[in-house]
C-alpha cells in the first residue's frame, strides 16, 4: 500500500500554515471534542493494531522467545538476533533474491508504458484492452499461482508441451529447477503487475494537453521526439511513483511464494517476508523473526524517505 507522499507532505505543510491562532472559546472546545469523536475510531484502531505492534517488533528483536513460553521466560540477548541474521544463509539468500526481484519493477514499467501508449491513441476497443490487461490485478494471487503452477508443470504442462512440440528437447523445468524458479516467479509477477502500471500510465497520458502534440506536429517533430520531449517529462511523476511503489511492493512479496514455491527448491525463491513467516510461524523463533521485521521496516522506510526527497528533485511538473 502506498500513496503519493508528495501530496501528503504538501497538504500537511499547507494545513499547518493555515492554522490560525484563535482565542479559546466554548465553540472551540466543542469543536475539539467533536473532532476527536470523529477521528477516534481510526486512532484507536491504528494505535492498537499498528503503532503498538511496530514498537513491540523493535523490542522483540532483542529477545529470545517463542509463543509457547510464558512472558516471564523472555530472555534479552542484545544484538544477537541481528548478528544471527548475517550468519544465516536463508536470510542472505532472501536479501539477494529480493534485490534480484527489483528487476521486475523497471521491466514491468517498460512493458506497461508501451501498452499504455499503444492503447491510448492507436487502437479501437480501448475499454476491452483496459479490462484485458487489468485482469490479473483483480484476480487473487492464490488462484493465479495455482494456475501457473500447472502451466509450468515440467512434463505435462502446456508450456513445456508447446516447447517440446517446436523441437526444444530440454526446456527448463521452471519452478522445479533451482536456477530457473526465481525467474519463473518474476515472470508471473511482471505479468500480474502490468495492469496496474498500465492504468496509471494511461491516466498520465490522458492528462497531457493535446495542444502540446499539435504544436510539436507543426514544428515537424517525429514520433520519437514527441515521446522523448513531451510524454516522458509529462509522465515523470507517474514513473517515479510507480518505481517507488513497485520497489516497496517487491519487498512485500509473499502470497506468490507461499502458494507457488514455499521458498524452494533449496531456498532458491526464498524472500524476506517468506523467511520472516517461516522463522516466526514454522520455527517459532520470535526474536529472530522480529529482527527480520526490523530490517524490512528499515528498507521500506529508506525507500519512502528517498521518495520524499526525490519527488522534489527529479520530477518535472
Amino acid at each position: 500500500m502506498s500513496v503519493e507522499a508528495k501530496s501528503v507532505i504538501g497538504n500537511v505543510v499547507e494545513n499547518a500554515k493555515s492554522v490560525k491562532i484563535k482565542k479559546k472559546s466554548g465553540i472551540e472546545k466543542k469543536e475539539n471534542l467533536t473532532g476527536l469523536l470523529f477521528v477516534s475510531p481510526m486512532l484507536i484502531g491504528v494505535g492498537i493494531l499498528t503503532l503498538l505492534p511496530i514498537i513491540a517488533t523493535f523490542i522483540l528483536s532483542f529477545a529470545d522467545w517463542n509463543f509457547i513460553m510464558g512472558i516471564a521466560q523472555i530472555k534479552w540477548v542484545g544484538f544477537d538476533n541481528f548478528k544471527a541474521l548475517f550468519e544465516n544463509e536463508g536470510f542472505l539468500k532472501s536479501v539477494a533474491n529480493n534485490l534480484l526481484f527489483l528487476l521486475t519493477v523497471p521491466l514491468t514499467m517498460i512493458f506497461s508504458l508501451f501498452i499504455a501508449i499503444v492503447i491510448d491513441k492507436h487502437v479501437y476497443m480501448k475499454s476491452y484492452f483496459k479490462v484485458a490487461f487489468f485482469m490479473p490485478y483483480i484476480s487473487s494471487i492464490v488462484a493465479i499461482a495455482v494456475v501457473w503452477q500447472v502451466l509450468f508443470n515440467p512434463t505435462d504442462g502446456p508450456i513445456n508441451q508447446f516447447l517440446f512440440s517446436i523441437g526444444i528437447e530440454n526446456p527448463p523445468t521452471w519452478i522445479a529447477d533451482p536456477s530457473f524458479a526465481l525467474i519463473s516467479v518474476m515472470l508471473i509477477q511482471i505479468w500480474a503487475a502490468i495492469g496496474f502500471n498500465m492504468i496509471l500510465f494511461l491516466a498520465g497520458l490522458q492528462s497531457i494537453p493535446k495542444e502540446l502534440y499539435e504544436a510539436a506536429d507543426m514544428d515537424g517533430a517525429t514520433a520519437w521526439d514527441k515521446f522523448k520531449n513531451i510524454m516522458l517529462p509529462a509522465l515523470s511523476p507517474t514513473t517515479f511513483f510507480l518505481l517507488i511503489t513497485g520497489i516497496i511492493g517487491t519487498f512485500k512479496v509473499f502470497d506468490l511464494i507461499a502458494v507457488l514455491t514455499k521458498g524452494g527448491p533449496i531456498n532458491s525463491t526464498t524472500m524476506l517476508v517468506w523467511h520472516l513467516y517461516e522463522s516466526a510461524f514454522v520455527d517459532l523463533k520470535i526474536g529472530y523473526a522480529s529482527a527480520i521485521a526490523v530490517v524490512l521496516f528499515v528498507f521500506v522506510l529508506i525507500i519512502t524517505l528517498l521518495q520524499w526527497v526525490g519527488q522534489k528533485k527529479w520530477v518535472n511538473y
Binding site: V3, I54, K252, L276, Y277, A289
Partner: peptide
C-alpha cells in the same frame, strides 16, 4: 502508513 504490514505480524 509507512509500516509494512508484514513487519508487525508477529506482535
Amino acid at each position: 502508513f509507512m509500516v509494512p504490514q508484514q513487519s508487525i505480524l508477529v506482535p
